[in-house]
Amino acid sequence: MSNNVIKKEWRFNFDFSVASGETYGRFFKGLNDKKIIGNICNNRTFYPPKPFCDKTLKPPDAWLECDGAGIVEAFTICCEKSNGVKFSKTDKKPDVPYVLGVIKIKDSEHCIIHFISGFETKDVSEIADKIEIGMKVKPVWATKREGEILDIEYFEPVI
């Protein structure tokens, strides 16, 4: 690099606002009431609901509801605190290591990504050993719920 350079710093600082629409809106309203809303679309079950079937592009057929119990299909143990990522409820920013899991709710044909917690250890290898693929988990609800995905604080193993 030549010495004749000049450093510049700047930021993207943008505020956005977006509407959920009915399909996702029903799901988030459900979270408020500790319910998981889904739907049936082209004979397939989805939690959270899908606004359309992406195989046929047809609209969904009916609404469904369940308690949110599901299974772990994949996970990773996050060991590095991300600098920039802000969680929408800052008090819930987890300490490392924490687990992000791919969770299939009931018989859903797609999955969600959420925290898995409740392992009583901070050792990465120990946590890795405690999580089995196909392990049953259930949502732990936040006391203060605002109709967003973090109304589920995390999923915990069903013992």
Partner: peptide, 22 residues
């Protein structure tokens, strides 16, 4: 059922400009 989601990006960028701009 509509719900409004508000969110924000606040990302810092850095670049070192070359000789002409310098």
């Amino acid at each position: 059922y509509n719900k409004r989601f508000e969110y924000n990006w606040d990302v810092p960028f850095k670049v070192t400009l070359g000789e002409s701009y310098f």
